[in-house]
Amino acid sequence: MTSTDIRAVYLEELLRVAPDLDADSIGDDDHIQDDLELDSMDVLNLVAALHERLGVDIPEKDYPEIATPGRAVGYLSKAA
């Protein structure tokens, strides 16, 4: 899976968790909690969805690694 594919999966699941986000306005450095206002339940739902789609187990201590689209692509590419 290329990093472009992973980015697409990440954004798709992010929008599923938070359908009221504007897809076009999400930047690579946007923090999902500080900037995009996801709460802890949304983050958990995102983690569960990424686990399902990519088979990547994201432990709680690694949640900061998926906190922006930019960081998530790097982390998920290594783990997937």
Partner: peptide, 17 residues
Amino acid sequence: LDTHNETAPPDERFLLG
């Protein structure tokens, strides 16, 4: 929560909430 969540898959993790 930390102990439980360490081994639980994301679907079965608990939040403090």
